[in-house]
Simulated assay, not measured.
Amino acid sequence: MATNEPTKPSRRFSQTTRERLASVGRHAVLLTWSFVVLFPLYWIVSMSLKPPREAISLPPDWIFLPTVYNYMQLAQESSFIAAFANSLVMVTASVIIVLLIGVPAAYVLSRYDVPKQRDVLVWILSSRMLPPIAVVIPFFVIFRALNLYDTRMGMVFMYVTINISLVVWVMKAFFDGIPESLEEAAKVDGATQFQAFRRVVLPSAKPGIFSVAIISFIFAWIELLFSLVLTNNRAVTVSMQVYQFIGVRQIEWGLLAAASTAIIVPVLVFVVAVNEYLAAGLSFGVVLKE
């Protein structure tokens, strides 16, 4: 005699449903978070493309005819163009110098038995332990004594000081993850220690090098406190020059948004240019030791 038992849903179907719901939930969270993160960027860019009156209109105009008026006005601000060029030259030079110093230093700390190596690493890291406000006045006194105040060379030195600990510590982790057997194989083939470093280790560490280069560029590019205290006229940076659009009685929102967008562009260009190595670098994607 047949019994009317309720049919149970298949376990496979329920598992598939749960996986789909989990996937939808993850995508919803990611989309929401992306919106939260990117909305301020959209707001700045859209404000820079609005006429001055529409830039501060409330409620905001979500649909508008874009204009480059603010960028044309910004291009006529010679002080901003000079500050932008200053920052671009000084920050680029500082990134090159900090890589030339920090990468070999990290390699030596990774491969050789340096006396009191742990103390050396802590000493290098100590340069980032103090808040900038605690060391800016001593730097001001030193810069005045060495005639580095308000000079591009002085700011390059300042940027290198800010980023050197980051480069050494991150790159040491990358070199620790590269097998020494690769260098030994290169030496067997007749390469010197420097040739093995240049031809074998550096190509394997490219993700890390580009990652620390980007981070160093960003840290130096957006730095404000040292620029405010250690510059006055000749070496003014772009982060300082943005404040010229904030007056006592009014704020030029259109020009301010255009200047902010212009500051973001070099970082985006840099990130896009090295995007091939960025993901692997930020996840420490190098060859692991066996």
Rank of each mutant, 00 (worst) to 15 (best):
L109D: 01
R20S: 04
A106W: 10
N86L: 04
P132A: 04
W62V: 03
F80Y: 15
M90H: 06
I222P: 00
I101K: 08
A262R: 10
V29R: 11
F197W: 15
V160H: 14
S79D: 15
V212R: 07
N86P: 02
P266E: 00
A82H: 09
F175K: 02
V265W: 15
K172C: 02
E184V: 04
K116S: 03
K187C: 00
L282H: 08
F217V: 03
A173F: 00
F143Q: 03
E19L: 04
F80A: 02
S211W: 01
G154M: 01
I263F: 08
L225P: 06
N4I: 03
R152Q: 12
S78A: 11
V135F: 10
A55C: 06
L21S: 06
G281I: 04
P40D: 01
L30C: 08
R198Y: 07
D61R: 15
S211C: 09
W43T: 03
L282S: 06
R53W: 12
E5Y: 13
I264W: 14
Q73H: 14
V160K: 09
L121A: 05
F270W: 11
S48R: 07
V160N: 02
G285H: 09
L256S: 04
P115F: 04
R26M: 06
V98H: 10
M158G: 07
P60Y: 10
L278G: 11
R199A: 09
I215K: 03
E276K: 15
G247L: 05
N4H: 05
T151V: 00
A82G: 02
R234E: 13
